[in-house]
Write a protein that binds this DNA or RNA. Structure first.
Length: 803
RNA sequence: GCACCUGUGGCGGAAUUGGCAGACGCGCUAGACUUAGGAUCUAGUGUCCCCGACGUGAAGGUUCAAGUCCUUUCAGGUGCACCA
């Protein structure tokens, strides 16, 4: 027996798999299909993080098991390669992002290949490849043609130092994450996508998919559906102010109203507002505040009363003051509210600050002068005329019915979800394939001109005014209008990184197609993705955006399913040994190259799966890694005690069947750690016994193959088997052989364990009870006491209740 | 502030359904082999006044029986941030 030489073994089998195309998926094979997918990585300069392989190994195990179960498996890989870090690196080092990207991809490819994932490399996609982004642009054009893309003035985060637009993630405490300069809001005309049109469907169709419950919850919270009413308030100017409320029941408790500073009515009424100067000043201050400041000052409410104006409460005719305040958002509801300080804590804060009356209309809480009472499940209406005595849950619809009858308001559903800001003033993204013509406005370029490639430019820095670097590519910008043939200019904004990742799973189905994003045939065969695993950090935006695009593509007949992903799971983070997030600055980064070099890919994969509960974050441990290496070595060394016997030995037969069942089930439940623990126990059994039959050994390495594929392939070959172990059938078990003949049960007296005994498995309730009561120990313990009750659970325990 | 998740030995974690808490691994202790051991093998390892009792962040409750269910509470993490 040779020593376990992982370096030679791993290289050998990786080459073999590649030569034989072992993991290539075939469209329209006779076998049932299985499409399993991980989030394709952003090829950063830092290389692979030990967090990446956690997800990749997990679904590699699923993919490999499915192949062994006879499925035609698609387990693809690609690159989400547009994006800021690459562009920033390019600016700093004056290299073309294309070159940086190619280099990073090369490194990532080397690292992924060294880990032996069973990806179908022939289907590799790259979002920055013009043949790929041709179709990203094509989808955008369809959205544009269907009226789902529009241009609007939106504020962006603008770094005064770097002179670039920043994403929200790059703004830390109001300053630029990289240079520390002040970040201000700058208004820019931006492309928007109408995701809000799909809000309801994005909630409803969650019923049809198998996502982890917490993922569904996050999606729903993000979309933020609320049911309420729009209520019309007459103003003293004769204008009408519409407010949105979910608590129509509290209308009698409204003591003032608030409009957001940006509300259009303010300008309309400027002649009636006596303190308009003050109002303008407040508006200017609010506009200056960054999003960050507005939220930071959440508790300290500010505002200005509109002098000379009042609103009329439609319920009781009361005259209410009208304020403007930045705690009311122009983007949500109608941009105006009725304030009920007794039953809303924000209104309560504001009322206290401005000394406004607080009227209780729901009883059941503490003194509303001390604290707002917001519970909607307890309490009854008071001070509310026809609503008095009703519980809140009844009062809400009763009030809305009344408002509708009087023509004073109507039911209304609102969503927190906003339309998707789709423009980036950046170079390294997909060009938006539109031109602006003075005569025709925004016009789509003909689909035959796709892809619209990024122009070659020398400097990737954005302009001083925050335009895209493309704004300086004058030759590229100037073009003719496809509609009227006149002069026109190209759009210089590019798409966000979310674009390419919103549909990449479709491209995997048919990655080299030049006539469509994928053929009808491929889409029909492979859709939907059966199992998609990724980080919890992508479960809101990325998932929502790609579901939105997919629904749109479904509506226009491009894809055959409503939902892109049938099953979505998430993995936890791997932390540094010190229990902190891994980062260069904390000096706790583990490099996969080092691990593989020292212990091999199989040990790395095994440890990544053994490290802890898959969905939980957990710290790295070099010792734990060593333990897994030792386990593999023990499996390897079992060779010295293998017998010629083909089947299972009599004394270990049950263990074998149990293990096959347990390992298979655990893989499916993503309990990889306990699956490996089961195999470790099996190895312990063999060692203890001092021998293992060839049949047992072959089953063990087959079960272990998805986790440690290289070593098990080698052992498979050493034992004279033909073909790849990776393509052998998954071991089967017999249910009846997973049950022991005799089972140890526990005998309790008053819930405390007093005795244990072996009884035949499957013995009924009475038999179990009888056996338990008749041991000498138990007889002695219950002697002289009154047996009140006996609970017998077959195959488990007997509990004797005595007095 | 709101939502979601997690609290179990010295450590990572097990305990699919309410039914033997601590599987498996690490670490530690002792022994064997050895010139040597950061190698390998064997045995032990929740706590305690070691009979027996106590133990799953804390306090209550339901139950014959609770890590698991309910109520309250504390701590940590993640997401969202005045969404009316």
């Amino acid at each position: 027996m040779e020593n376990y030489n992982f370096k030679a073994i791993e290289k050998k089998w990786q080459d073999k798999w590649e030569e034989t195309g072992a993991f290539h998926a075939e469209t329209n094979s006779e076998k049932p299909k299985y499409f399993t997918m991980i989030e394709f990585p952003y090829p950063s300069g830092a290389g692979l993080h030990v967090g990446h392989p956690r997800s990749y190994t997990a679904l590699d195990i699923i993919a490999r098991k499915r192949r062994m179960e006879g499925y035609n498996v698609l387990y693809p890989i690609g690159w989400d390669a547009f994006g800021l870090p690459t562009e920033n690196f390019a600016i700093k080092n004056k290299v073309h992002p294309k070159i940086v990207t190619a280099k990073n991809i090369e490194n990532f490819t080397r690292q992924l290949k060294m880990l032996g994932f069973s990806f179908d490399w022939s289907r590799e996609v790259n979002t920055t490849d013009p043949n790929y982004y041709k179709w990203t642009q094509w989808i955008f054009l369809q959205l544009f043609k269907h009226g789902l893309a529009y241009k609007q003035e939106m504020p962006i985060n603008w770094c005064t130092g770097c002179k670039v637009g920043l994403s929200n993630e790059e703004v830390v405490s109001g300053v630029c994450e990289r240079c520390g300069s002040e970040v201000v809001q700058k208004r820019k005309s931006q492309w928007m996508l109408k995701i809000t049109e799909y809000a309801q469907r994005l909630i409803d169709d969650l019923d049809d998919v198998n996502y982890l419950e917490k993922i569904k919850t996050q999606q729903k919270n993000w979309i933020g559906r609320s049911e309420g009413a729009e209520v019309k308030f007459k103003l003293s100017t004769g204008d009408e102010m519409v407010v949105y409320t979910t608590r129509a029941d509290t209308l009698f408790g409204a003591t003032y109203t608030v409009m957001s500073p940006e509300h259009p009515l303010i300008e309309k009424m400027k002649d009636s507002i006596k303190n308009y100067d003050e109002v303008l000043k407040y508006k200017a201050e609010a506009a200056k505040k960054s999003e960050f400041e507005r939220t930071e000052l959440a508790k300290d409410k500010t505002g200005v009363k509109l002098e000379g104006i009042y609103a009329v409460n439609p319920a009781n005719g009361a005259e209410l003051p009208v304020f403007i305040s930045d705690y009311v958002l122009v983007t949500y509801g109608t941009g105006a509210i009725m304030a009920v300080p007794a039953h809303d804590s924000r209104d309560w804060d504001f009322a206290k600050k401005f000394n406004l009356p607080i009227i209780e209309v729901v009883s059941g809480g503490k003194n509303v002068q001390e604290e707002a009472y917001t519970d909607v499940y307890k309490g009854n209406m008071v001070n509310s005329e026809f609503l008095n005595g009703m519980p809140v849950k009844e009062a809400i619809p009763a009030m809305i019915d009344w408002l509708e009858k009087q023509g004073l308001g109507e039911r209304k559903v609102n969503f927190k979800l906003r339309d998707w800001v789709f423009s980036r003033q950046r170079y390294w993204g997909e060009p938006i394939p539109l031109v602006h013509c003075d005569k025709c406005g925004w016009v789509a370029i003909p689909e035959s001109e796709l892809p619209l490639e990024l122009p070659e430019i020398d400097t990737f820095e954005p302009g001083d005014n925050g335009e895209s670097p493309l704004a300086k590519a004058y030759d590229w910008i100037e073009t003719t209008c496809p509609h009227c043939g006149g002069k026109a200019q190209r759009e210089t904004d590019t798409m966000p990184q979310w674009a390419g990742s919103s549909w990449y799973f479709l491209r995997y189905m048919d990655p080299h197609n030049n006539d469509a994003l994928a053929s009808k045939e491929a889409l029909e065969y492979w859709s939907p993705v059966d199992w998609y695993n990724g980080g919890m950090e992508h479960t809101t935006l990325h998932l929502l955006y790609s579901r939105f695009w997919h629904k749109f593509l479904y509506d226009i007949g491009v894809v055959p399913t409503k939902e892109p992903y049938m099953k979505r799971t998430s993995h936890g983070m791997i932390l540094g040994e010190n229990n902190e997030k891994m980062s260069k600055s904390r000096g706790n980064v583990v490099n996969p190259d080092d691990v593989v070099n020292e212990f091999g890919a199989d040990a790395f994969r095994t440890y990544e799966m053994f490290i802890g509960a898959f969905d939980q974050s957990t710290p790295w441990s070099q010792q734990g890694l060593k333990g897994c290496y030792k386990f593999l070595e023990r499996v390897w060394n079992l060779q010295s005690i293998v017998t010629d016997e083909e089947g299972y030995s009599a004394d270990l037969e049950k263990n074998m069947h149990k293990a096959i069942k347990k390992v298979g089930d655990d893989f499916e439940r993503m309990k990889f750690n306990t699956a490996i623990a089961t195999m470790m126990s099996l190895v312990n059994d063999f060692s203890k016994k001092g021998s293992v039959t060839r049949g047992e050994y072959m089953t063990l390495i087959t079960l272990l193959n998805p986790v440690a594929p290289h070593m098990t392939e080698e052992l498979w070959q050493i034992y004279g088997n033909d073909g790849l172990l990776s393509l052998q059938p998954w071991p089967s078990f017999e249910e009846e052989k997973t049950v022991d003949d005799e089972i140890e049960i526990v005998v309790q007296i008053n819930g405390k364990i007093k005795d244990k005994l072996m009884i035949p498995a499957g013995l009924d309730r009475n038999g179990t009870q009888e056996a338990a009561m008749n041991t000498d120990k138990i007889k002695g313990l219950i002697e002289g006491k009154t047996v009140v009750k006996v609970i017998a659970v077959p195959d488990k325990l007997v509990n004797i209740v005595v007095k």
